[in-house]
Write a protein that binds this DNA or RNA. Structure first.
Lengths: 265, 265
DNA sequence: GCCTGTATCTCGCTT
DNA sequence: AAGCGAGGTACAGGC
């Protein structure tokens, strides 16, 4: 049996049956159709007729793509319900989410193609270069902050937010650290300031606040100084990891990179 | 000529030709395949073999979906380049983005289906219930804030951020307003405080700061009080708008809602 | 280009 | 269930 079944030139009623049965079987459903879309929930939207790509996933996700942009024009998150039926000779797909209550109605004026995809996908994404990697770097090598720095807590909860890294400098002052995986802006400075103020309510010790990021905007740096905070440049490490934890992968990527150079030059 | 061409049982070399030619023609390409994916750029990621859905859009967008979740497992934003070729008998799709430099390599172990979609989609999404709608409500009806309130500026730029609404109360005090379309949290309070502090550098007038949102978290409200700010409950209006500006649409949505009740009860 | 802030953000995590 | 913060966030608007 093939992994994919394809239907074209299909009547609305048949399409609705195929979709509902396939959804129950836990398959991915791809629909190419001309449709109009109504959405109401946290906001309200409508869009007139156009050729779009619909993806219905077995977890209840609904994604509707236009022919441009990375973001779907309409969607429903995992856990939503899916119903398909025929109405006035047209395929209608209705998805409802509860809490918050949100509804999407897709009315298909023309169905070009329906693909039923019995997908098997056991692997999870392995990623590095995140803020978490930056935190682990500091945890394992506290001296990257400064000589004599000690980590006291990661993800330390205060009444007014969660501090990425709480530490202590060699003079015994409390150090509040806010991490950013990429450029730090005004918001990051406000965040750090909030945590420092929160800690001032909890202790009478001297407190320093340090913003850690590979880059900072000019106005953010000005704000850091205005608030008596500090900035230190530091990048999150990108460490290739394979499923079994060995760093074999980068060689393979480099292999492809070479391949790219050969193809395009 | 049909809007969709479908290919299955296709060789890697043929697939690559179809993809490259179709991309040049400005069509949407949907590929169902078992693949591994390498990504390197702002971060670094890998994922082992699995059945996924790939969408290549004519604007250079690449989206790769697993069988669950709303978010793609890997992607490339609009403006990226797309290349497809055969390597060791396998289809390889490579996408590069510059600034920042990011590369995705998809190696297909098996191609289940390729659909070439000549999509036509002229309409844009019409949406309401956004922060912008809340701002317009206040601009047209300043009294929703309080009696005697006057709007001075929308999107007023300070050295430390952009104030949603700058206004004046009936006592002649400057009022800084921060809007949220949904629940306000700690971050919103920090933001408002930053703007109020920024204005204090620019004027000697008395300044009030008001956070406007349909809801606020408990700790955010505590922080509002701690900083001497104010909170006012207000919701962004959801106004159905049709393409020509008339509010005809909600009747149609209600029509479908009734339909839903009939179908499910 | 960079910077700033919103989003029907989504997602994971913790209380 | 609600709150909090990260994200390869994407996206729009300004400068």
């Amino acid at each position: 049996m093939s992994r994919v079944d394809v239907f074209s030139n299909i009547k609305a009623r048949d399409a609705s049956n195929i979709i509902e049965q396939s959804f129950v079987r836990g398959e991915v459903i791809i629909i190419l159709a001309n449709c109009i879309i109504h959405y109401e929930g946290r906001a309200l939207s409508d869009i007139g007729p156009g050729d779009r790509v619909l993806i219905i996933k077995p977890d209840g996700t609904l994604i509707i793509h236009k022919k441009i942009k990375r973001e779907p024009v309409n969607w429903q998150p995992p856990g939503s319900t899916i119903r398909a039926y025929e109405r006035n000779g047209r395929l209608v797909i209705k998805s409802i989410r509860y809490n918050p209550y949100e509804i999407i109605i897709v009315e298909c004026l023309e169905i070009y193609l329906i693909a039923i995809y019995d997908a098997i996908d056991p692997y999870a994404l392995e990623i590095s270069g995140t803020e978490r990697d930056l935190a682990e770097l500091i945890y394992r090598n506290p001296e990257v902050i400064e000589k004599g720095f000690k980590v006291l807590k990661l993800e330390y909860q205060t009444p007014f937010g969660i501090i990425d890294v709480l530490g202590e400098d060699k003079e015994g002052r409390l150090v509040v650290i806010e991490l950013k995986r990429s450029s730090a802006g005004l918001q990051s400075v406000s965040q750090l300031r909030r945590y420092v103020e929160a800690m001032k309510n909890l202790t009478r010790r001297d407190i320093r606040g340090i913003l850690i990021a590979p880059r900072i905007t000019e106005s953010a740096l000005a704000l850091v100084r205005k608030y008596g905070l500090e900035y230190k440049k530091l990048e999150p490490p990108k460490v290739p990891r394979t499923h079994d934890g060995r760093g074999v992968r980068s060689k393979k990527l480099l292999d492809y990179m070479d391949d790219y150079e050969n193809k395009t030059e």
